[in-house]
Design a binder for these strands. Sequence first.
DNA 1: AATATGTTTGAATAATAATTCATAGATTAT
DNA 2: ATAATCTATGAATTATTATTCAAACATATT
Lengths: 223, 223
Amino acid sequence: MDNTSLPRRQRERLRHRQEIMDAALRLFSERGYHNVSMQEIADKSEFSIGSLYKFFKNKEDLYRAMVLDRAYVFRDTLMKAIERPGDAVDRMKNYIRAKGEVFAANISMVRLYLEVTSGSRFNLKAGFDEEIQGIYEDFMDRFASVFSEGIEKGLFHASDPYYMALAVEGLTNAFLFLWAEKPERHPYDKIIPFIEHILLEGILTGKARQRILGESGYKAPGS
Amino acid sequence: MDNTSLPRRQRERLRHRQEIMDAALRLFSERGYHNVSMQEIADKSEFSIGSLYKFFKNKEDLYRAMVLDRAYVFRDTLMKAIERPGDAVDRMKNYIRAKGEVFAANISMVRLYLEVTSGSRFNLKAGFDEEIQGIYEDFMDRFASVFSEGIEKGLFHASDPYYMALAVEGLTNAFLFLWAEKPERHPYDKIIPFIEHILLEGILTGKARQRILGESGYKAPGS
DNA sequence: AATATGTTTGAATAATAATTCATAGATTAT
DNA sequence: ATAATCTATGAATTATTATTCAAACATATT
C-alpha cells in the first residue's frame, strides 16, 4: 500500500494522484457526478485542470478510478471481518459491526456505496462498473458461504445462503442510510443489537410464534 | 383522478402534460437525470422542445413534477395495503406483497424509488425533495404505527416500531433491486416467503436459539 | 551550466445541452 | 368569415463545462 520501494518521483506522482481522488471523493459524494466540475476538483485538490488530465484520461476515468479505489478498501475491510475466527453467527455480527465502522470512518462512502451497489449502473455509460460489480459480487458470494457453513452446522434454517447474505446487506444498508442522515439521532452502535435480533430471531414474540405459526416452524423455500 | 369535469381544452392539456411526464419517466429511469436531454424527452413524447417549456418551467421542474406524481401513486398503493383489515402481521405481509406489485407494474419505478428514498437528495439542488421526503416520511410513520399496534397486541417484541418499519423497508428493497436486475432468476413472488420468514422468525434454528441465546430471549433495545 | 526529461499551468477551444422567442397553426367566440 | 385566444414549433441564443495544448517551470543527467 505504501509504495516505499518506488523512486521518489513516482512516489510523489502516486501521492498526487491520490490527493486528486480524495478531493474528488468528497465533492462527488456530496453532490453527485454531474454536479461537480473538473474546475472544482482542480481547485479543491490544488492542482490545475491540465494536471487532472495528466493523471486521468477524462472525468469519467477519474470517477471510475476513485470509486474503484474505495471499493477495494471497502471490500477488504468487510472481507477481513467475515474471515475472523468464530462461528457463522459471530462472522455475521462481525460484518454488521465492521460495515458500520467503514462507513463511520468516511461518511461520504455511504453515498458512494449506494451508487455503486445499486445506483450508478444507470448513471454512467454502460459497462462502467463491470469491475466494481465484480468486486461486490465476489464479496457477496464469500459472505453467502458464511451462511452455508451456518446451515451445515445446524445454526441456520436451510434456505438460500445468498438470500441470507442479501438480507443482512439490505437491513444494514437501511440503517446506515438512516444513520448517515441523522447520526446523532440514530447512532449505528445502538442499532446493531436491533439488527442482530431481527436477523437471528425475527420480530415475533414466542407467544405469537406459537399462535400464528404453530410449533412446526418454517419450511425453507428456494433451497 | 380522471378530470371528467373540466372543459375539453384543459383536459387535453392535462393529458399532454401527463404524456410528457410518462416519456420523461421512462428516459430518466433508464439513464438518470443528467443523461437525458430535453430534446430526447421532446422526441419521445412527440412534442417540441418549446412545448415542454410551456408545461414545465425548466428541466428540473419537469423531473420534480414527474417524480412527485409517481411518489403519490406509490404512496397510495402502499398506504391502501397496510390499511386493509387484519392484524399487524397481515398488514406487514400486505405491504411486502403490494410493494412487489407496484414495482412489477412499472419496473422503471425501482430506479426512481431508489433515487427518491436515498439517492437524489444529493443529486439535485438542495431542497428539491422536501415534499417527496415528506411523503416518504408520512408513510413510514403510518407504517410504524402498524408495528406499534402489533406490539400492543403482544404479537411483536417491544422494540422501536419505526425501526421495525425500516427493517421491512430495507429488506424488501434489497430483494426488489435484485429482482429488477434479473427478474427471471429472482422472481419476487418466490422470495416473499423468505422475507416474511426472516422478519417474523429470523434465521436461527430452534436448536441454535436455545444454544446461543438461552431461553431468556431478547431484551429490547431503544424502546 | 547546458541539456534532457518530466511536470504543471490555465487560457483557448469545442461540444453539449438548456432555454428563449418570434412565428405558425388551431380552436373558439363574435 | 374574422377576430381573438390559446397552443405548438424549432432554429437561434446562451450557458456551461469538458478537454486540449503550447508555454513555463522543476528536477535529473551529462
